[in-house]
Simulated assay, not measured.
Amino acid sequence: MRIDIMTLFPDSLDAMLNVSILGRAQQRGYIAIQSHQIRQYTTNKQMQVDDYPYGGGRGAIMQADPLYRCWSHIVETYGPGRTIFLSPCGRTFTQSVARELKERYDHLILVCGHYEGVDQRFLDACVDEEISMGDFVLTGGEIPAMAVTDAVCRMVPGVLPDAECFEEESHWNGLLEYPQYSRPAEWHGRQVPEILLSGDHGKVAAWRKKESYKRTMERRPDLFARFDESQLTTKAEKKILAEAKAEFAAEHPACGDAESAGT
């Protein structure tokens, strides 16, 4: 997996993406992440990349030509890739979108906007899609670019020790992750659930699944309402879900039964 990021602030990206897990994965050759300074592709001495918007209005717009020159250099040097503009006007980024990008493409080109926007002609000519972090606006595209890069790259084989490292986490299967505990067994009078100290891996797995259901019902009823119960193929799996619903209803009587969660 290769990810090229077009930005005005490469140092801020490099400081985060070249350390820890992603840094080690790059050293081992599993992924390649490179930031590109858009200002290096200007044709003026001031290295100016923005100008006033046609039609008037406040602020400035990133010009199409420096962006195009930077994009062209990436494509000519590293080959074509899925070009994504990080924008509040795009589809919302989710775990399923991250999986889609990882599974369908081996090269992503992320474009970080700034100022009041980007010349639409560059977007029309070079961008394949726009992606948003949610219904809010940020100063620039660097934070979204780091989020997309991290979410996609951590699923590349070899980046994490085992697929279970991300398949057990929140949103992978449409649920939130179960609660986690570590040593000591008692902290400030709070105990680790006894089942986790039992050594019975089957019971631990069942408890974690049940807690995952209950946490999703409580915190994200919208997610639980979309959970596809038909994927549960064994009696044991169906029993765990039924127990989770019953326990949730008993613990949260004001919320009504779990069947109506999210409605």
Rank of each mutant, 00 (worst) to 15 (best):
L196G: 08
M155D: 12
D128G: 13
L196P: 05
A64E: 01
P88K: 11
D135K: 09
N44Q: 03
I84A: 10
V49M: 02
M1G: 08
Q46T: 06
E194Y: 01
S212V: 07
V152I: 14
Q120P: 02
F227A: 10
G59N: 04
A147P: 00
N18P: 00
Y181K: 03
V148A: 01
R104I: 06
R208H: 05
I195T: 12
L22F: 08
G90I: 08
E247Q: 15
S132W: 06
S96Q: 15
V152S: 11
R154T: 08
I33Q: 12
L123P: 04
C70D: 02
I38T: 06
Q40L: 14
D257T: 13
V97M: 15
R121T: 05
A225H: 09
E259L: 11
F93H: 15
K235E: 14
A249S: 15
A205H: 02
P179A: 05
D162R: 04
D124G: 04
A242G: 08
F166W: 15
E186K: 08
F85W: 07
I61P: 00
A147K: 00
D119V: 05
R215H: 11
D200L: 06
D162N: 13
E251C: 09
V148C: 01
R82P: 03
G79Q: 05
Y41G: 06
A163G: 01
K238T: 08
F93M: 15
M133S: 04
A147S: 07
T7K: 12
E218T: 12
R39E: 07
I84M: 10
G113M: 04
W172A: 00
P221Q: 10
P193V: 08
L160R: 11
A250W: 07
R219T: 03
R2F: 07
G134E: 09
P161H: 11
L175T: 05
K210Q: 15
C89K: 15
G158W: 12
P66Q: 06
E164K: 13
E259R: 11
W187V: 02
M146W: 04
A151W: 06
L197C: 07
D14Y: 00
Y41M: 05
Y78P: 00
N44E: 10
E142W: 03
M6Y: 05
S12M: 15
G56L: 05
F122P: 09
L101P: 13
D119T: 03
D228E: 13
E211Y: 02
A250P: 03
K45H: 12
L110D: 11
M62L: 14
